[in-house]
Design a protein around this nucleic acid. Sequence first.
DNA 1: AGGCGCCAATGAACGCAATCCATCATCCAG
DNA 2: CTGGATGATGGATTGCGTTCATTGGCGCCT
Lengths: 233, 233
Amino acid sequence: MTASTVRKRRNRVVTRQSQDVRVGDILKAARAIIGQSGYEGVTVAEIAERAGIVEGTVYRYFKSKEELLLKVAEDWFAESFSDLVDVSAFSGTYNKLRYLVWHSLKTIKAGPALSRFVFTEVRPKPDYKDTAVFDLNRRYTEQIRNLFAEAIESGEFSHDVPERLLRDMVFGTIEHSTWRFLRGEGDFDPAEIADEIAAVLYRGMSAKPPEGDRFAVVLARLESVADRLDEKA
Amino acid sequence: MTASTVRKRRNRVVTRQSQDVRVGDILKAARAIIGQSGYEGVTVAEIAERAGIVEGTVYRYFKSKEELLLKVAEDWFAESFSDLVDVSAFSGTYNKLRYLVWHSLKTIKAGPALSRFVFTEVRPKPDYKDTAVFDLNRRYTEQIRNLFAEAIESGEFSHDVPERLLRDMVFGTIEHSTWRFLRGEGDFDPAEIADEIAAVLYRGMSAKPPEGDRFAVVLARLESVADRLDEKA
DNA sequence: AGGCGCCAATGAACGCAATCCATCATCCAG
DNA sequence: CTGGATGATGGATTGCGTTCATTGGCGCCT
């Protein structure tokens, strides 16, 4: 890295850095600030100061504050997905569903401030769909789609529930479950909540009343077996 | 109403109004503007102009822009609840649930801009719980609570689902289902979506057949017995 | 090694929006 | 009719994002 620092006049400090370093510094600074005091109060001046530069410099690398914050959120979100494994690694629809819910909850818990930013600033934008956040979210929904298709094919899930609705239920419930926490009013255990959510969703999607049909089938079979036993007797 | 208007100097206009009228005018102006161009762009100057007053006057009646907008949202939300009937008017858990979902969806559809405001600005605030919006929402959850308790008591719903989770599923799903619409990307039919949501929720909450666990064990045993008998046959 | 030109970095200035406040205009009680 | 009391005004202030004319460091070229 080429970087020299020189004082001129009234302690004017000029340090030239490569684009990568500067952008990295700025993003890191912004993220640190958001992480410790939320995104609602951040100021470009504050970010610049923490990055060791001046406000104007920020604008050499980012078109606007909005764009900068979006980038921070996108990077964070992308990192959150780095450990997402393919649900095919899990056996059974329930476990797959539970894993996705758990992963999402874990992400929110790990980054409350940025989660809030995504929920309140990114998603409502008209160009949300051009966002990396949107693309990343498709990784979740993609897996949900597969899991869902398989479960329907095997007869495990009812085919009369639109996939869109399943997605909305999964993510809507996840988000709503975390608002108290996001407001700073308490905590939650991702594993516990994931279990609850997955359980109800699973049952809600199930093709038939949980055990009802199986009961009828087995009952019929038992009757026929009993009949045969009776005949033998 | 006492109201006189006089021009002084360079057309300075001063009109004295009662508090009620002024507050009403301001709220009406703010609401109209939000209604037609969303809340994200509103300016105090714009509101003042539409209300026929000057910016400073707004601050005689509202501590801040934030407080003003919150009041607008609260009033709107309160009006939305004016036609909410008690779910006891509906027969059957499903119909009650469906009605609540439908009513909520209808409200969102009727006021997209203010819904967005509530979702993105009001709910995230630390003092959300001091808000009239929060209180009003309790009317929904109160009814959900009752409906839920009754269904559990009658054995219709499983008792192993926390009430909190049901609430989160209901409202989370409702909200998530409407985001596309709120972003201005399409439309939705409250009745249709309410049906879908209520159906899946209802099924998800449904009780297992009595004595589920024991039943499962016995079932498995009977099946294995039947298998053996089948083999012999 | 020295000079040059490019472009990163600066920091002052600008614009806009929220908020405050000194002053003026009305209203109304007496 | 007149003197508070209080509503209304509009200009001043402040904070923040954004712009841009200058400055000067760094790598390249000779």
